[in-house]
Amino acid sequence: MTTMTAGGLPVDGATLHYQVRGQGPLLLLIPGGTGGAAAFDEIADGLAAEYTVATYDPRGLGRSTLDDPEAEQHVAEHAGDALRLLDLLSPDRPARVFGTSSGAIAALHLLTARPERVARLVAHEPPVVEVLPDAAEHRALIARVRETFRTQGLMPAMAVFAAGLKKDGDAAEPKTEPELRLPPQAAARAEQTMAGLPYFVGRIVPSFMSYAPDVRRLGELTDRLVLACGEDSRGELPYRPAALLAERFGTPLLHFPGGHTGLTTHPAEFGERLAEALRA
């Protein structure tokens, strides 16, 4: 196994817990949801054969503590955290970046705000629903999630959120395909995932899914932007923004194995596809 070192980075309003393994040009992996650095445990060692791989817990999740636990969260602030890590670990040359889900939203903001610091970005299913023609419907979904969380609690809010992400006409029940039989390491992370859900639903979802990216600026940066989706996500809400942007920019849409959580359900194949995308 590749040797890993860990550190703590003070940033404005928080302290980030990060991990570094491997050597070579920097690759920063930005997780989505509540996964934190551990979400990349099953692919980071393989990538560390080519890169210095940095993973971290986003502020407010896992071991990255907030100075004010009740602080509101903002995409620009999370992108700034990623920039601080780039400046710490690769101060003299731009880095490769991978982000998934909410982490991909932060990564898109990083790219538009500081493009000179990003050599290549692979953005996997960023749910930037404001770019969609039916964005108003998704604003209503976010409002329903917030109100349900406030009045009924976490699990009812999660049910509303999950139903809103599905394809039109899909039943609300969870899928039972084999891909959702999680690998042992992923199953062991369930406790951390549950612990972070109130913060994610209450503060990350409303802020991040209300974020409108600078589409014009992204269109000027397609030489270093790879938009990606899951093979099994077609038609679902997290798939649609990246697909729409790729079509608008006239760039290929890269497909990863699995669905929105393909990193968890298909880690080996996901890591291989990411390595290919970073080399291209």
Rank of each mutant, 00 (worst) to 15 (best):
residue 1 M to C: 14
residue 4 M to H: 13
residue 7 G to S: 11
residue 7 G to C: 08
residue 8 G to E: 15
residue 18 Y to M: 02
residue 18 Y to P: 00
residue 24 G to Y: 10
residue 26 L to I: 06
residue 27 L to M: 04
residue 31 P to S: 08
residue 34 T to E: 04
residue 37 A to T: 03
residue 38 A to T: 06
residue 42 E to G: 07
residue 43 I to D: 01
residue 46 G to A: 11
residue 47 L to V: 02
residue 53 V to M: 04
residue 57 D to P: 01
residue 59 R to M: 06
residue 61 L to T: 07
residue 66 L to I: 04
residue 67 D to Y: 02
residue 69 P to W: 09
residue 72 E to R: 12
residue 72 E to P: 06
residue 74 H to A: 12
residue 77 E to M: 09
residue 78 H to Y: 15
residue 79 A to R: 00
residue 80 G to P: 00
residue 80 G to V: 08
residue 82 A to I: 09
residue 85 L to N: 01
residue 86 L to S: 08
residue 87 D to L: 10
residue 88 L to N: 02
residue 88 L to G: 03
residue 89 L to M: 08
residue 92 D to L: 12
residue 92 D to Q: 14
residue 94 P to T: 01
residue 98 F to R: 07
residue 99 G to R: 05
residue 102 S to Y: 01
residue 107 A to T: 10
residue 111 L to C: 10
residue 113 A to N: 10
residue 114 R to S: 14
residue 119 A to F: 01
residue 120 R to P: 08
residue 124 H to D: 13
residue 131 V to W: 01
residue 131 V to L: 15
residue 132 L to Y: 07
residue 132 L to K: 04
residue 136 A to R: 12
residue 140 A to R: 14
residue 143 A to T: 11
residue 145 V to L: 06
residue 145 V to T: 03
residue 149 F to Q: 03
residue 150 R to M: 10
residue 151 T to N: 03
residue 151 T to Y: 04
residue 153 G to N: 05
residue 155 M to V: 14
residue 155 M to Q: 15
residue 155 M to H: 07
residue 165 L to H: 05
residue 173 E to R: 12
residue 174 P to T: 02
residue 174 P to S: 12
residue 174 P to Q: 11
residue 176 T to H: 15
residue 178 P to I: 09
residue 179 E to C: 12
residue 179 E to G: 00
residue 182 L to R: 02
residue 183 P to S: 08
residue 186 A to I: 13
residue 186 A to Q: 13
residue 188 A to L: 05
residue 189 R to I: 02
residue 189 R to V: 00
residue 193 T to V: 08
residue 196 G to W: 02
residue 197 L to M: 15
residue 197 L to H: 05
residue 197 L to W: 08
residue 203 R to N: 00
residue 204 I to S: 00
residue 210 S to N: 15
residue 213 P to K: 12
residue 214 D to Q: 11
residue 214 D to W: 07
residue 218 L to P: 09
residue 219 G to C: 05
residue 226 V to Q: 04
residue 230 G to W: 05
residue 233 S to R: 01
residue 233 S to A: 11
residue 234 R to H: 13
residue 237 L to G: 03
residue 238 P to V: 01
residue 239 Y to P: 05
residue 240 R to N: 10
residue 240 R to Y: 09
residue 241 P to K: 08
residue 243 A to P: 04
residue 244 L to A: 13
residue 244 L to V: 11
residue 244 L to P: 01
residue 246 A to E: 10
residue 250 G to L: 03
residue 250 G to P: 09
residue 256 F to N: 11
residue 257 P to A: 07
residue 259 G to P: 04
residue 262 G to Q: 09
residue 267 P to W: 00
residue 269 E to M: 08
residue 270 F to M: 01
residue 276 E to G: 10
residue 279 R to Q: 14
residue 280 A to Q: 15
